[in-house]
């Protein structure tokens, strides 16, 4: 009596290959250490030994010039790259707060149901389509050079940094609105049905059932957008606002050394890395929670 599914009477060989066994045991630790040294050491060697290596180190990573760029010296015609970061920071802080609120308003308009709100629904849809489609740099240029031309008194008499900040808000609100909306739409329809069948209104359902669940799914993508907002404060430099990138640019064209750019890059990393780590931590925690639920 044998069928196609009957196996051999004795399983032939159930052992993993020697290589697999080596990597699964202590060998794995050794292997990752060796590969780490080889890869990182290799990259360092290329950087150190390349024909132009010394030149690059001198022009981009010279500690003396880096420090000089960091502290700045207006008497010699260049600004502090370090102090420039304060401009990036306030632009980010203001833009972030406004983006989170505006994004929420736009998303609510798009998700509204009432016939009375139809015009807002159409406007908010058009808004997200338009501003997700235009490169941020263009929005910054149009607002930064357009509004002052309008001669609108207060509106036309702001500093470049303010226009840049406004442009970032305009652009990022469109992205963040879509993040919020996706979060709300990710909640199963049954949740809405269950809440409405209890006699809760649409508003109460949003407030007590949908949004509390949506917030959880929305936080990681939201943080991702805020990280890129942090970096994009550098774009405001095209309007002439003296922020970190602009200060580094001025330094390099005054002193003919690019080490200021390395300083600016390091400063941005110091800002963004804690946030990227935190975001990854939240994502991992969410994943663990989902795996535990399944």
């Amino acid at each position: 009596m044998s069928s196609a599914l009957d196996g051999e009477p004795v399983p032939p060989d159930l052992f993993a290959s020697r290589r697999r066994r080596f990597l699964a045991g202590r060998g794995g630790v050794v292997a990752s250490a060796v590969s780490g040294v080889v890869v990182i050491g290799g990259l360092a060697a290329v950087f150190w030994l390349a024909p132009g290596g010394a030149t690059v180190r001198y022009f981009f990573f010279n500690p003396h010039f880096m420090w000089q760029a960091f502290v700045g010296d207006p008497s010699k015609g260049f600004y502090s790259v370090g102090l420039g970061l304060l401009t990036n920071l306030w632009i980010f802080a203001v833009a972030e707060a406004l983006v989170l609120v505006c994004g929420m308003l736009i998303a609510s308009a798009r998700l509204s149901q009432s016939p009375v709100l139809l015009p807002f629904r159409l406007l908010s849809t058009a808004y997200t389509d338009v501003f997700r489609g235009i490169p941020i740099l263009l929005v910054i240029l149009m607002i930064g050079f357009g509004l002052p031309e309008l001669n609108l008194g207060y509106v036309s008499n702001q500093s470049p940094a303010v226009y840049g900040c406004a442009a970032l808000v305009v652009s990022y609100s469109a992205y963040v609105a879509e993040v919020y909306r996706a979060g709300v739409l990710s909640i199963p329809h049954g949740q809405l049905l269950a809440s409405r069948s209890l006699g809760l209104s649409h508003g109460a359902t949003m407030r007590r059932v949908i949004l509390p669940q949506a917030v959880r799914t929305v936080i990681p993508p939201l943080l991702n957008d805020l990280i890129s907002l942090q970096k994009d404060t550098a774009l405001v430099s095209v309007l002439g606002a003296i922020e970190t990138t602009r200060a580094a640019q001025i330094y390099s064209s005054t002193v003919f050394n690019f080490s200021g750019y390395a300083v600016a890059a390091i400063l941005f990393l110091l800002l963004t890395i804690p946030m990227t780590r935190f975001t990854d931590h939240l994502i991992a925690r969410d994943r663990a929670r989902r795996l535990a639920g399944a």
Partner: peptide, 24 residues
Amino acid sequence: FQSFNLFPHLSVIDNILLGPVHAL
């Protein structure tokens, strides 16, 4: 419902209280 549709972010008691407290 077939798929229960309990509110996962609320405890059992809060699931039950939601309607009477917030609708009634």
